[in-house]
Design a protein around this nucleic acid. Structure first.
Length: 300
RNA sequence: GGUCGGAUGGCCGAGAGGCGAGGCAAGGGACUGCAAAUCCCUCUACACGGGUUCAAAUCCCGUUCCGACCU
């Protein structure tokens, strides 16, 4: 019986380390569920565990994209699921670790993502520019009132995607949503790591300082040379975006570093909001002996 | 000692008599193909004391503090 275990939570809560320990204990392999650690060359700024710290535990979906390529959930979903199957077929357990909530959900739940079409999307984006986002939202209200209700009228990105899906599938956007929560891996155990805000803030600050000392700037410099600005996903990563802005002369190094800390804090908040909605997650606080707590639940 | 200019919410910053600009930060929230993204909500301030007025952050008087200049 092969298990699927998820370790999630906000950034800087120590997910990677716990995952290694858990994996060592139960003989599992690790699948990365962090949208930015997918990128080759994004090591320091994403706090990617160096090889020697992985203690021999096989890691999957690390360094699988070039910085110029865009990551998407649909692509990730397929790949990650095939990795889970692969590991299970090998008779081992899979530990999924990461802070990208949507990606984790995409593995576990029966989310299906209707295709995308660059032409349609480009056209919609152009229309938004010319007619304004209000016009597109109006169209969405007509074509799919339920979707319009669920999407903020100012959230152009989601409005465009909804219209794109409607056009491609010929059905309302909401028709593609699952009726109820149906899980592909019903037995998956999800653990969430939590820390109080103050503590987390300190850890984030410290971590960013260390990244700087470890040569974060030169890492970004070489990625700029590799064309990170051509892609749209990688260049928005925390810290990377700030250092790119710094290299463009928009902000000082000091500002870049402080902005990175602040953006990380805000990100952590968004992550907590996201994960807090999932009632399947079992939360583990910092006061608890985390590894033991998790192992106990896995084995019970 | 004198003259002039300031003093606005955690920070920045407009307003210059009449339904509490705005931005950032902070907190809360949403979320099915860019998710470390995108977006929404909340946070009633005007240095202090008097006065004028139906109405003052906005006008008048005084006080305190800051800055510039003068002696």
């Amino acid at each position: 019986m092969n298990r699927t275990i998820v370790i999630c939570g906000a950034t800087a809560t120590g997910k990677s380390d716990i995952a290694i320990e858990v994996a060592l204990e139960i003989g599992a392999e690790i699948i990365n569920a962090d949208s930015m650690q997918l990128y080759r060359g994004m090591d320091i700024g994403t706090a990617k565990l160096p090889l020697e710290e992985r203690k021999g535990v096989p890691h999957h979906l690390l360094d699988v994209l070039d910085v110029t390529q865009d990551s998407t959930v649909a692509w990730y979903q397929e790949l990650a699921r095939s990795k889970v199957e692969e590991i299970h077929n090998r008779g081992r357990d899979a530990v999924i670790v990461g802070g990208t909530g949507l990606y984790i959900k995409a593995i576990l739940d029966d989310l299906n993502f209707p295709d995308t079409n660059p032409d349609i999307r480009a056209r919609l984006e152009k229309e938004a520019e010319n007619l304004g986002s209000a016009a597109l939202f109006g169209r969405l209200e007509e074509l799919d009132p339920a979707a319009a209700l669920a999407i903020d009228r100012a959230n152009l990105r989601r409005i465009i995607r909804a219209l794109e899906v409607i056009e491609i599938t010929g059905q309302p956007f909401t028709a593609n949503l699952p009726r109820e929560d149906s899980s592909r891996y019903p037995d998956a155990l999800q653990f969430g790591l939590v820390m109080n805000r103050e503590k987390l803030r300190e850890r984030i600050d410290l971590r960013v300082e260390r990244m700087w000392d470890a040569g974060f700037i030169s890492e970004v410099d070489s990625l700029i040379a590799q064309g990170i600005e051509e892609g749209s996903t990688a260049q928005r990563a925390l810290g990377y975006a700030q250092i790119i802005a710094m290299r463009k002369g928009l902000i000082s190094e000091d500002e870049a570093r402080e902005e990175t800390k602040r953006a990380s804090r805000q990100y952590a908040r968004r992550q907590e909001t996201w994960f807090s909605r999932d009632t399947r997650i079992q939360w583990v606080t910092e006061e608890q002996p985390r590894l033991e707590t998790i192992l106990k639940k896995i084995n019970s």
